[in-house]
Simulated scan of single mutants.
Amino acid sequence: MDFPPNNIAQNSLFQKISQPRRRPAKVRDTHITLAHGSGGKAMRDLIDDIFISNFDNPLLSQLEDQASFNLSTLLQQGDRLAFTTDSYVVDPLFFPGSDIGELAINGTVNDLAVSGAKPLYLTCSVILEEGLATETLRLVANSMKAAAQKAGVQIVTGDTKVVPRGCADKLFINTAGIGIIPAGINISAHNIQPGDAIIINGEIGNHGAAILIARGELALETDIESDCQPLHELVATILKVCPQVHAMRDATRGGLATVLNEFAATSQVGISLNEVSIPVREQVKGICEILGLDPLYLANEGKLVLVVKSEQAPTVLSAMKSHPLGQNACIIGEVIASPPGVVLLKTPFGTERIVDMLVGEQLPRIC
């Protein structure tokens, strides 16, 4: 967040933010101005008031240009580092069930989790458009704080930039994450073999449908909410009973269809899906029928797809159903030897169709 160099003033600030008491707000402006990105007092106050007060932890409190970690401590938790980054430009910023702040935390946590890693540390970089309401930014930061606490991760460094009005759309967030992969875990699409079972942890398409409705472009009323949620604990539950998971991904942009096409292309196997086994809420189906969309391509923010040996599938499924985020888990298909690189869908009418990679964009600015 463009923190200043280490000096007496910084040490004094560190002493203040280390005290467990409510800190008075310093930002008096109702909207973001270019001064909040200038590197001066206005930016310092914005960072101190909105970001450090919410994200405060021993690593962030050092106010250095980077966070430093003890490698020996990290190595006690695993033998490999997982590192990921993602940017969030969702429109609108707030939508049924979640918002851009929670989405930024959970999205990066999930990218780490599906590698088998325990998520530990995140960065937070924001690009603010001049004129953004300060209260909006405060609400987003509060949401990020709550999501990080729920996921058990710390936001340890970041950056803040302000661009002139019209050069961005309110607020963009980038988060990067670090996690530790325990020894013996090797999750990769290259591991997929014919005969493997494909499992998902619940309904698809809810996030995409919620965003679509939230944009107010359709005169539709629905109670669909985004499925935005952290998946690390569900992954830990799975790996406890089956450390030999072959592959795992979270089905975000491009949806279930994109993940499975990536699996098939990477491992050069075929994938056969059973349409009636894929859980889709009736309201989501209705929206898709009205707009000519396919729920297989709708984005999700709390759904993971995993591939395991068929003989391990019942054990994995039972473990998933014991967790709140896996109660609706089900087997949706299997891996086949041919045609390689192709995803097939068995329809309720006894026919098969190819499920290709998404061409173009069904719904932009989804995450």
Rank of each mutant, 00 (worst) to 15 (best):
M1D: 04
P5L: 05
N11H: 10
N11V: 02
R22H: 11
A25S: 14
V27W: 01
V27A: 06
L34I: 09
S38M: 03
K41I: 12
F51I: 09
F55C: 14
L59C: 02
L63V: 06
L63E: 05
Q66T: 05
Q66M: 05
Q66Y: 13
S68F: 14
N70S: 05
L71T: 10
L74R: 14
L75V: 03
Q77G: 12
R80N: 06
A82P: 09
T84R: 12
T84K: 10
D86N: 11
V89A: 07
V90Q: 04
P92H: 09
L103S: 01
I105E: 07
T108M: 10
V109I: 10
D111T: 01
P119C: 11
T123A: 11
C124K: 13
S125L: 08
V126Y: 00
L128G: 14
L128V: 05
E129R: 06
L132S: 04
L137V: 04
V140A: 02
M144V: 02
A151D: 01
V153W: 00
I155G: 00
K161E: 10
A168M: 05
N174T: 07
I178T: 07
G179A: 07
I180C: 08
I181G: 13
A183N: 14
A183K: 15
G184T: 13
S188F: 01
H190L: 11
N191D: 06
Q193V: 11
Q193G: 03
G195K: 10
A197S: 15
A197W: 02
I198F: 02
I199M: 01
I199K: 00
I199Q: 00
I199R: 00
N201I: 14
N201H: 10
N206L: 12
H207Q: 04
A209L: 06
I211V: 10
R215F: 05
E217S: 01
L218I: 04
A219F: 02
L220C: 10
E221D: 06
S226D: 12
S226R: 06
D227G: 04
P230N: 06
L231K: 06
H232C: 13
E233G: 11
L234N: 01
V235L: 13
A236K: 15
I238T: 04
L239P: 13
A247L: 03
R249A: 08
D250P: 11
R253D: 13
G255V: 04
L260R: 09
L260D: 04
N261E: 08
E262F: 02
A264T: 03
S267R: 12
Q268N: 08
Q268S: 10
Q268A: 08
G270C: 09
G270Q: 03
G270Y: 00
G270T: 09
L273F: 08
V276S: 15
I278W: 00
P279M: 14
P279H: 10
G286E: 10
L291K: 15
L291Q: 15
K303V: 11
Q312V: 01
A313R: 00
T315C: 09
T315I: 09
A319C: 11
K321Y: 02
L325P: 01
Q327T: 07
I331N: 05
E334N: 13
I336F: 00
P339T: 04
P339V: 03
G341Q: 06
V343W: 00
L344R: 12
P348K: 11
P348R: 11
I354L: 10
D356S: 15
V359K: 15
V359N: 08
E361V: 11
L363A: 07
P364L: 12
P364A: 03
I366H: 03
C367L: 13
